[in-house]
C-alpha cells in the first residue's frame, strides 16, 4: 500500500526501502506533531501573558494627570472611540463631558476667555455643565463623572439611575 507514495513506486525496492521508509514516516510524523504542537501552544502561551496596556474597563478612562491642567483650561481626551473634554474650572474643579457637538458633530473646545465650552463650527456655546446655552446646538453635551484617584483623573460614563 505504501506504493501510493509517489516517490517510492519501484516494487523491487520494497524490502531494501522498508527500513529507511519507516524511519522517514516516523520522522515526518514526529516532526509534524512537534511543529503543530508548537503552532498551537505558542499563541496560547502568548495569550496567557497579560498585555501591558492595562484594561481600564469599560466605561472609564484616564483622562489626564493631576497638575497637567491649569485652572481655567481644558483638554481633549479619548473616550472609547469618541473625543471627550476635560475641563478644570477657574475654581480648580474638574468637569468632563463629551466633546462632540450636538449640532453637527464637530469637536468642541474650552474657551478660557469665555469660560464656556465653544464649538468653532457654528459658534455654539455650552456652559460648564454641558448645557447648550447659545447658538445652534439642540441638546446638551453628555456629561461624564470625574474621579481623582491618586495622580490620575478618571472619567467615566454616568450610570443610569
Amino acid at each position: 500500500m505504501a506504493t501510493s507514495d509517489p516517490g517510492m513506486t519501484n516494487p523491487n525496492d520494497r524490502l531494501s526501502a522498508a527500513v529507511p521508509r519507516r524511519r522517514f514516516v516516523e520522522v515526518l510524523l514526529g516532526g509534524g506533531f512537534l511543529a503543530t504542537a508548537a503552532a498551537f501552544v505558542y499563541p496560547v502561551l502568548r495569550y496567557l501573558v497579560p498585555p501591558k496596556a492595562s484594561d481600564l474597563g469599560s466605561d472609564s478612562v484616564v483622562a489626564g494627570r493631576v497638575g497637567e491642567l491649569k485652572p481655567n483650561s481644558g483638554k481633549i481626551f479619548r473616550f472609547g472611540n469618541r473625543p471627550g473634554l476635560l475641563i478644570r474650572t477657574a475654581t480648580g474643579e474638574y468637569r468632563a463631558m463629551s466633546a462632540t457637538c450636538t449640532h453637527l458633530s464637530c469637536t468642541v473646545q474650552y474657551r478660557d476667555d469665555l469660560r464656556q465650552v465653544w464649538c468653532a463650527c457654528h459658534n455654539g456655546k455650552y456652559d460648564l455643565n454641558g448645557r447648550n446655552i447659545s447658538g445652534p446646538p439642540p441638546r446638551p453635551l453628555e456629561g461624564f463623572e470625574v474621579q481623582v484617584r491618586g495622580e490620575e483623573i478618571f472619567v467615566r460614563r454616568r450610570r443610569e439611575a
Partner: peptide, 21 residues
C-alpha cells in the same frame, strides 16, 4: 452592558493572539 463590548475589543486589540482565539 458597560464592559462586555470593551473587553472583547480589548481581547481583539491588546491581548496577543486574542484575535486568533
Amino acid at each position: 452592558a458597560n464592559e462586555a463590548f470593551e473587553s472583547v475589543q480589548y481581547i481583539m486589540t491588546q491581548v496577543r493572539f486574542g484575535w486568533l482565539v
